[in-house]
């Protein structure tokens, strides 16, 4: 059997390899190539070297968007994970109807980002209307609007991951701690959190990358207004691509830089949190 698998490996792997090549690797390499070109469509690209990258870094909007994204990511990663963890703790207690609550909390995650953005836009504007304001009145309204939206959408998902982590903790450990006289705070910090480290790794990774790459919600909720002060990186890339004649290459260059940043952050985070994981 082993031998047969080895022998047929190339054939069995072929469909996946081909699909990977066509739908991922080739577009990816083409994307990097295009970031060095002036182009309108993929067919009429002209090589321009690092010109696009110079323009991208000289572009104030890009730097502003980067800062806004960083601020947003920090705030939303912290709030989402803390709240999700709290909900997970609550819903792993022996309460009535935990399953119903779990389902309800998870549901927002099933709705698409654009739809969520428009729904929350209506809610937020509906409330702000009483104060004679809209979400575009102040950049901080847009910022907190995005944070609320992101929390609402992701908490349920992260909660499910934390719940499965918490349920996997062996009751022996908790019991032993109780017998040793550990109070609930000590149990939380010395038993539960170290034991759910793998879940924390996954949740941090997901929230970090999702917040950093946020596009749909940003596009639907504020579209960058007022001015470009609530424009995140992905939206800036999109606007660069379509905003000026001949700037498609610059948009592409920004996208490549964006990829490098996301990859660097995600890998660092994975490395750091993996070290903290303990074996059961």
């Amino acid at each position: 059997m082993q031998k047969a698998i080895k022998k047929w490996f190339p054939v069995l792997a072929l469909p996946t390899v081909v699909a990977f090549l066509i739908s991922f690797l080739i577009p990816f390499i083409m994307g990097i190539y295009l970031s060095f070109c002036k182009f309108k469509t993929v067919k009429n690209a002209k090589w321009v070297g690092f010109d696009n990258y110079l323009k991208a870094f000289a572009n104030e909007d890009f730097i502003n968007a980067l800062w806004f994204t960083v601020k947003f990511t920090i705030v939303s990663v912290i709030t989402i994970n803390i709240l999700a963890f709290l909900f997970a703790m609550l819903l792993t207690k022996a309460l009535r109807g935990t399953n119903v609550f779990r389902t309800i909390f998870f549901m927002p995650n099933l709705i698409g980002g654009i739809v969520l953005g428009y729904i929350w836009l209506m809610i937020i504007n509906g409330v702000l209307q009483y104060f004679n304001a809209t979400i575009t009145t102040n950049a901080s309204y847009g910022f907190w609007g995005l944070v609320i939206l992101m929390n609402w959408q992701l908490i349920g998902y992260m909660m499910i991951i934390y719940i499965s982590g918490i349920q996997n903790i062996s009751p022996d450990l908790i019991e032993a701690a109780q017998i040793d006289g550990a109070n609930s705070v000590q149990r939380l910090f010395h038993i539960t959190i170290p034991q759910v480290m793998p879940s924390i790794t996954i949740c941090l990774f997901l929230t970090l990358t999702n917040s950093f790459k946020l596009f749909d919600q940003n596009y639907a909720l504020t579209a960058g207004a007022p001015g470009k002060s609530t424009q995140m990186l992905a939206l800036d890339i999109y606007n660069t691509f379509y905003g000026r004649v001949g700037w498609q290459g610059v948009g592409q260059a920004k996208a490549v830089i964006f990829f490098l940043i996301v990859a660097a952050i995600a890998l660092t985070q994975l490395f750091l949190t993996r070290r903290k994981e303990v074996e059961n």
């Binding site: 007022p226 001015g227 905003g243 000026r244």
Partner: peptide, 14 residues
């Protein structure tokens, strides 16, 4: 460019 119009529109809002 589109960008000129968009920036002008954003200014008007402010």
């Amino acid at each position: 460019s589109e960008n000129w119009k968009n920036e002008f529109g954003a200014s008007l809002l402010e």
